[in-house]
Computed example of a mutant assay.
Amino acid sequence: MSYRPIISNVEEASNNEKDGLYEFIFYLADGTECRTFYNRYPEWKMTNITRLQKTPCPVCRKDFICRCMESFRDNLQQQVIDNEWLEKAIVK
């Protein structure tokens, strides 16, 4: 069975509105948390994603730094677009 990340919540961690740079925390349904960086101009684009070190990686089971979430970038980005997560996080 392959891993399928599902976003359950998004929270804005920080921003630099002048340059259009934003940092968000993605809370996934399995308890994993990821830090993502976005550039707003000319349109929203994910520039980086990393797993926060609170739980072992659901893919490789390592409890230290890994790059597994990079392979799910397109899937997560599509969920963000479909559910308008960034707009909801900025409004809060």
Rank of each mutant, 00 (worst) to 15 (best):
A29N: 10
V91C: 00
W44H: 04
I6D: 05
P56Y: 05
Q77I: 04
K62F: 09
D74K: 06
I25H: 07
K88A: 07
R35W: 04
R40C: 08
V59H: 03
C66A: 01
W44P: 07
F64I: 11
G31W: 02
C34L: 15
N75T: 13
S71Y: 09
P42E: 09
M69Y: 06
F24I: 09
D19Y: 12
A29Y: 06
M46V: 03
F72R: 05
R4D: 10
D30E: 06
P5K: 04
E84H: 10
D63R: 12
W44A: 07
E70K: 05
D19R: 15
R40W: 09
E33M: 11
Y27P: 00
C34M: 10
N39A: 13
E70D: 10
W44K: 05
D82Q: 08
S2L: 14
G20W: 06
E23M: 09
K62T: 08
W44C: 03
N9M: 04
I25E: 10
N15I: 08
N16F: 11
C68M: 02
S14D: 14
R51A: 04
R51D: 03
R4G: 07
Q53M: 15
C60W: 02
R61W: 10
R61F: 14
F72I: 03
S71M: 08
Q77S: 11
D30H: 04
E43I: 11
R4Y: 14
E70W: 01
A89N: 01
N39Q: 15
